[in-house]
Computed example of a mutant assay.
Amino acid sequence: MDPSKVIVDDFVLTGLRVPGSTKNSFKLGTNTAFAAQFPGLNDMGISITRADLDVGGIFPIHTHRVSELLIVVEGTIVAGFIDTNNNTASYTTLHKGDVMIFPPTLLYFVVNARYTPVVAYACLASENPVLQLVHFALFRNNLPSELVEKITLLDQALL
């Protein structure tokens, strides 16, 4: 960012007050404050995302290359991760005001655990964090089905 062109609006973002649309198969809506939406984050090493989960909503198993701090603002979730050293799942129920840390590169998930909508904020240790949804990586790629079957140990009937 050219310092001579910096304005106060580069350091203010009001979009996180707006709920993300949950009209999708995950019943999950997100609004992000990454460097692309929030220029003041350039070279700061931080970002934030608002996550809205409708009743039955999920943030499917995924990973980031950086750590994440999740803060529940409204509702109740089940959140957890899979330890890739021993394939052990660790999860817990989080309520309004609770916080959970997800270390970098672990596979983790979030599920709306009750019958009311959820609002949570995820603070990430990068201005441009990378999100990798595991099922998209495995099943929305250009590999032939036969190869996907082999590398996932799944039967064609399940794909």
Rank of each mutant, 00 (worst) to 15 (best):
P60C: 05
P60A: 08
P60K: 05
I61W: 01
I61P: 01
H62R: 01
H62C: 01
H62G: 02
H62V: 01
H62Q: 03
H62A: 02
H62P: 00
T63L: 12
H64L: 01
H64C: 00
R65N: 05
R65K: 11
R65I: 00
R65C: 00
R65W: 00
V66M: 01
V66A: 04
S67K: 06
S67N: 04
S67L: 00
S67Q: 06
S67C: 01
E68F: 01
E68W: 00
E68L: 05
L69M: 12
L69P: 00
L69W: 03
L69Q: 05
L70E: 01
L70H: 07
V72T: 07
V72K: 07
V73G: 00
V73R: 13
V73H: 12
E74Q: 15
E74R: 15
E74V: 09
E74G: 03
E74K: 15
E74D: 09
E74T: 11
T76P: 08
T76S: 13
T76V: 15
T76Q: 14
I77D: 02
I77W: 04
I77V: 15
V78P: 06
V78W: 08
V78Q: 14
V78S: 10
V78N: 14
A79I: 04
G80E: 09
G80M: 08
G80C: 09
G80A: 09
F81C: 07
F81S: 10
F81M: 11
F81I: 08
I82E: 11
I82M: 13
I82A: 10
I82P: 05
D83W: 12
D83S: 14
D83H: 14
T84E: 06
T84Y: 02
T84F: 04
T84G: 02
T84N: 01
N85A: 13
N86Q: 11
N86E: 09
N86L: 07
N86R: 11
N87M: 14
N87G: 09
T88L: 13
T88W: 08
T88D: 12
A89H: 12
S90C: 14
S90V: 15
S90R: 15
S90M: 14
S90P: 07
Y91N: 12
T92I: 10
T92P: 04
L94V: 03
L94D: 03
L94M: 10
L94A: 03
L94S: 02
H95Y: 14
K96Q: 15
K96Y: 07
K96C: 07
K96D: 08
K96A: 12
K96F: 04
K96P: 04
K96M: 09
G97H: 10
G97A: 07
G97V: 08
D98N: 13
D98R: 03
V99H: 02
V99I: 10
V99F: 04
V99R: 03
